[in-house]
């Protein structure tokens, strides 16, 4: 196993940037935005795991696990919200939900 840490980080950054791009490009669609967020979170997890492997301690993996737990909480709430909003407005287009604009 002789992968430089920088390659792991670059892979993570590519994933992260793709997630970001997904969020930005699909900004009209809540579900795709959430998917983009998941990609970004995975990239972060990869960073943590890479760091954990680099320094040989478990903490990074622990944080990856915690990110997963957080994500599951987040996604369950977010999707419940999506379903709820869909029921109310019949739409998952983010730009339809601007009633709290300044």
């Amino acid at each position: 196993m002789s992968v430089p840490l920088s390659h792991v980080l670059i892979l993570a950054s590519v994933l992260f940037a793709m997630g970001l791009g997904c969020v930005v490009a699909w900004r009209a669609n809540v579900i795709m935005m959430l998917i983009g967020i998941e990609i970004m979170l995975n990239a972060v997890m990869l960073t943590f795991v890479g760091g954990s492997a680099h320094w040989g301690i478990a903490d990074g993996q622990l944080f990856a696990l915690m990110i997963m737990a957080l994500t599951s909480a987040e996604v369950s709430l977010a999707l419940a919200m999506v379903v709820y909003l869909h029921r109310r407005k019949g739409s998952v287009n983010t730009d339809d939900f601007d009633s709290m604009k300044g």
């Binding site: 002789s2 430089p4 840490l5 920088s6 940037a17 791009g21 680099h54």
Partner: peptide, 26 residues
Amino acid sequence: PAVILFLAVVGSVTVIAASRQPAIAP
């Protein structure tokens, strides 16, 4: 904008990561 952001992020991280070269211990 997505592509620009993508390039910005990847470029930045590549630069930062490449400026140091720590390898995962074999």
